[in-house]
């Protein structure tokens, strides 16, 4: 399971960079709520492939960088990434046997958890939230997950990361 080549590390880092770019790509203001949480999706994918290799410190660093990028309080995404990663470590053996649509439902829950912690921090920062709109990214993330999963499977298959 442990990747021996530098190749796979490069792929992992590159996938996170692409996800970071997508996470700040400008969207029309009306659609801003519906942006899937790309960084989190990439993290979930790699956590399910190499649950013991991706370190929480690395995820933490990615989260902090995302905070810098989006200019939200430092630690917001770091915190949510760690929480989700911990859930992933605990559950990856069961989730591997899920069908694709069931996996998408699981992603919906994970992104929902991430949104809860993120919005808790935003509330502390003086931007309180009302309603269920915070689940919008969870819905879109779950919808793109099957395609996302197939795309990344193909990438990792091509570079023989497994």
């Amino acid at each position: 399971m442990i990747p021996h080549q530098w190749n796979s590390y490069l792929i992992i880092v590159a996938s996170f960079i692409v996800a970071l770019v997508l996470s700040v790509y400008p969207l029309p203001l009306g659609l801003r709520w519906w942006r899937p949480e790309f960084v989190l999706l990439v993290a979930i994918y790699w956590m399910s492939v190499f649950p013991e290799t991706i370190s929480l410190f690395f995820l933490c660093a990615v989260g902090l960088f995302q905070d810098l990028l989006e200019s939200v309080p430092l630690g917001q995404h770091g915190l949510s990434l760690i929480i989700v990663a911990y859930i992933c470590i605990q559950s990856y053996q069961r989730v591997r046997n899920f069908a694709l649509w069931k996996e998408a439902g699981w992603v919906f829950i994970l992104v929902g958890v991430e949104q809860l912690s993120s919005n808790w921090v935003q509330g502390l920062a003086g931007r309180p939230l009302s309603g269920l709109i915070f689940l919008a990214p969870a819905i879109t993330s779950a919808l793109v997950w099957p395609f996302f999963r197939m795309g990344l499977d193909r990438v990792s298959g091509h570079y023989q990361i497994n």
């Binding site: 430092l74 917001q76 770091g78 915190l79 929480i83 911990y86």
Partner: peptide, 18 residues
Amino acid sequence: MFAMIALILIGLYTTWLK
């Protein structure tokens, strides 16, 4: 995780991280 929460609170209530 607690380090992250501490970081968030420091960032929100002080100007040290600026």
